[in-house]
Amino acid sequence: MSLEGRAVVIRQDDVDTDVLYPGAYLNVTDVAQMTQHLFEGLDPSLRDQLGGDTALVVGANFGAGSSREHVPQAMAASGIRFLVGRSFARIFYRNCINLGLPVVMSPEAVEAASPGSTISLDLEAGIVTVDGRPFRINPVPAFLRELFVAGGLVPWLRARLDRSATVVEIGGSEE
């Protein structure tokens, strides 16, 4: 699975989900409407930089705080195809994976990227390339790759519930 995108860069560390999507809009359930409030507490002008092929490059502990899934849902709907960061906060990281939005860690790649850089991600090879320079990403566990390939937790689980499995197993019957 190989993806390519143009970099939009948020360099600060510890960016929380409250600034990424303020609490006042948590009663929005329409994803198109959510995209109108993405980055609102951080820098709303970042929204204008998002295209259909964005690679979001971020600092350390990105997505700290609230479990609000509005953030990665709005990101995916705004054309962010994957994220490369120094590190991610736990629930945000889970939410991205569950939505089939690849999130990988490579501090070196973050260092090398600047706004507009061309970034490509090869999950199988474990490589992210920034303007032609390859960097190794932190290993992604097999199960998380399985989720990315399935397109997220919804299709992954639907396939298992379809087979009316009573016990959900990682790897399922493919193994």
Binding site: S67, R68, I91, N95, N98, L99, V154, L157, L161
Partner: peptide, 11 residues
């Protein structure tokens, strides 16, 4: 998050 909770509710 919500997708995780959906999986918990379903399975």
């Amino acid at each position: 998050g919500s997708t995780d909770i959906a999986a918990c509710l379903a399975s």
